[in-house]
Design a protein around this nucleic acid. Sequence first.
DNA 1: ATATGGACTTTGAGTCGTCAAACGATTAAT
DNA 2: ATTAATCGTTTGACGACTCAAAGTCCATAT
Lengths: 240, 240
Amino acid sequence: MPTSTVENYLKAILVRSADADAAVATGSLAEALGVTPGTITTMVKSMASRGLLEHQPREGVRLTDSGRAHALAVLRKHRLVETFLVQVLKMDWAEVHEEAEALEHAISERVLLRIDAILGHPDADPHGDPIPSAKSPQFDRDSSLSLATCEAHRQYRVERILDQSPSFLEFIQRTGLMPGSTVKVAERDPASGVVRCELRDHPATLGLPEAAKIEVTEAAARPRVAAEAHPSSGSARKPR
Amino acid sequence: MPTSTVENYLKAILVRSADADAAVATGSLAEALGVTPGTITTMVKSMASRGLLEHQPREGVRLTDSGRAHALAVLRKHRLVETFLVQVLKMDWAEVHEEAEALEHAISERVLLRIDAILGHPDADPHGDPIPSAKSPQFDRDSSLSLATCEAHRQYRVERILDQSPSFLEFIQRTGLMPGSTVKVAERDPASGVVRCELRDHPATLGLPEAAKIEVTEAAARPRVAAEAHPSSGSARKPR
DNA sequence: ATATGGACTTTGAGTCGTCAAACGATTAAT
DNA sequence: ATTAATCGTTTGACGACTCAAAGTCCATAT
Ligand SMILES: [Mn+2]
Ligand SMILES: [Mn+2]
Ligand SMILES: [Mn+2]
Ligand SMILES: [Mn+2]
């Protein structure tokens, strides 16, 4: 029964250890969690003593199996809650991340089961982030194509937005670049750092670092996102 | 921005100060909150210094206007969340109190507004407890009639259950004594401490202290409860 | 009027999460 | 190799919340 503080630490470590079994630097955690480096060292030692992670002093931390399981559970709650807030409570796409940041620590397994069922067991949240499954703690890091790296003049489908800040999400929403939408890069100019895109019925311009935060796949690829983009036939729920 | 601990203290004080402006004894708070008397004294002094209440040493505690406003907001969240869990997430009537005990501290005003709207602005929770309104912080303590005090051989309507313990609520549910149901006292024997009732299609027996926890009004009285009792026509939502 | 018992408060201590500032280790530059 | 710079750890302190145990107040019963 970790506290919500510990849960936030676990989650921060998990999402930073996607690539292989490289250790996560304590400094990156300090920055992510908004606390001083000394605080991280202290917390990390206490979490290590509880078996949630291993701490290689001066090098970084690695989750144990137990720590990873806890972290995945929290991440799952976070993303299911976000999806619920958008689809059932009809809340704003750009603000649900903050809400979920608090709710992920207050929602019981029982409530989570109901939410998951009502949503039809989605496998991605409104930002396109994969929802870890209750059983198989898979954690895919598949597509590494973004608006900063894809080919120009070809149709792509937005899969995932890699930034949770409300201001960025609001920009995405304004320009219609949400997961599920179709987009084409019209021009990419490394000199000026500007990317010009074509949406279904209007253009959009953004900087290279911002374009890198928009993950895409070739337009033919299978859809995977839970958020509703088009008013399709039937109920608001998706199977599987 | 009180912590969730302080919010729990405020709520405990509020629900114990319904009657007039009598001070709430610190001992009753210690019991209600499951902490030692010394802890209450300490917390109460700190809350007094923050202007949330006044502390008459050796006598008790009284909420300030600011403290009462906070307490009412928390109570409102608690009861709206309970109603939401029952009506929208279809959770068990007997277990939502515990869930709400945690969620009341994690839900933002924004989320609360959505929940309230989706529920159609209910004015009582599934246990019949009044939901303080956002504007008028009214807090009615109207009916004082219970299955322990009402007349025998007359029809009454269950309005409210004054005990949140899951085991008691499960008993109520099993016997069909939820708010909205109709009941008649067949026999009350002070000697044995037993109350025998008639429900719509079956009898029920309970002790006097338990009967006192079931608030009723004369059967003709206006309904007031948000929980669904009968599958009525139309949608699952109630107006006003 | 005094003594007693119960309710409340005080005191000393511990845990958790945090900071600021001093300190150490490692790496990169000269 | 020495020196700097950077990154991480230690240390001492604090606020919030809690307990156990000792101390105080006060209403009441003698
Ligand atoms: Mn969080
Ligand atoms: Mn998300
Ligand atoms: Mn609570
Ligand atoms: Mn209730």
